[in-house]
Design a binder for these strands. Structure first.
Length: 279
RNA sequence: CCCCUUAAAUAACU
């Protein structure tokens, strides 16, 4: 069952939902983890109804099962349904509450996030980060900053959330200061930082930070393209596009804007044609 | 503490 569950997770992430369901069906004695994986698999493929059916059919649900269903509704914009399930739960944990926080955040309802936060029996670092993000994303930077400093716990996620807020408001100095005060860095925080630097106009300093990053992923590469494309450095953007190890839709869209800014319709067409899901 | 659930970074469209 243990290995079957790992297989189930693999099919959910990499394969189709029907394959995942087949793996589940082949399990002799599915345990609560198997059921939860199935519920989650349906949710990740946008099949909320089937997810709920599985949930209703499963024996011995645990906290995670309930939280999956609440999250499924909250993340798909059905916050009212999420709350109905929430109200019907025998008990709730901090994750349950955090899921509701995210439901409001997804609607950009900062008030809802704040109200829910106040109602929580106890907040953890995820709750605090959600609150920081919600205020930062809606332009309430001062509040976001205040909460960041008042937070009982903070980690690299919280730092990055506020950092992104500074980046979006164009306050590179504050972003830099925060970045330098962070206990640790990772791809996400460094990407947020070099983008902030680029937006302030110092593209070379941004590039230097990118080059200094020990690990890069497709998002950091795409971000770099965007930095060049949005500052009129079309050739540099193209060079990055060519040099990067893999592409996704974001890479292509970013490079398309670079070409169109340069008025290079021919090469834009060429790129467009090479995007599988567009042509 | 564990195989499952929640928080941070990128493009375009609208």
């Amino acid at each position: 069952v243990f290995l079957g569950n790992i297989l189930l997770l693999m099919y959910t992430r990499l394969g189709s939902i029907e394959q995942a369901r087949d793996v589940f069906a082949a399990l002799l004695h599915p345990n609560v983890f198997s059921w939860n994986l199935l519920i989650q698999a349906f949710i990740e493929h946008g099949e909320m109804e089937r997810s709920k059916n599985a949930f209703d059919a499963m024996p011995g649900r645990n906290m995670v099962s309930w939280n999956c269903v609440v999250a499924g509704y909250a993340q798909s914009g059905h916050l009212e349904d999420a709350k109905l399930v929430f109200d019907g739960m025998p008990e709730r944990d901090t994750v349950t509450w955090n899921v509701i926080l995210q439901g409001y955040a997804a609607r950009c309802d900062v008030e809802g996030v704040a109200r829910t936060f106040e109602m929580m029996p106890e907040a953890d670092v995820v709750s605090w980060t959600s609150l920081i993000t919600a205020y930062a994303a809606t332009g309430h930077l001062e509040r976001s900053k205040g909460i960041f400093h008042r937070a009982a716990q903070r980690n690299i996620f919280s730092y990055t959330a506020l950092l992104t807020g500074y980046a979006q408001s164009g306050d590179v100095r504050a972003a830099r200061k925060l970045f330098d005060s962070m206990p640790e860095w990772n791809i996400v925080s460094s990407t947020a930082m070099f983008q902030a630097i680029a937006r302030s106009g110092d593209i070379d300093a941004a590039r230097a930070l990118f080059d200094a990053m020990p690990v890069k992923n497709i998002v950091s590469w795409n971000t770099l393209i965007g930095c060049y494309a949005q500052t009129g450095h079309t050739e540099a953007a193209i060079a990055v596009f060519v040099a990067m190890p893999e592409w996704d839709v974001c890479s292509s869209c970013a490079i398309l804007t670079a070409y169109s800014d340069a008025g290079d319709l021919a090469r834009a067409r060429e790129t467009f044609a090479s995007i599988p899901c567009f042509s």
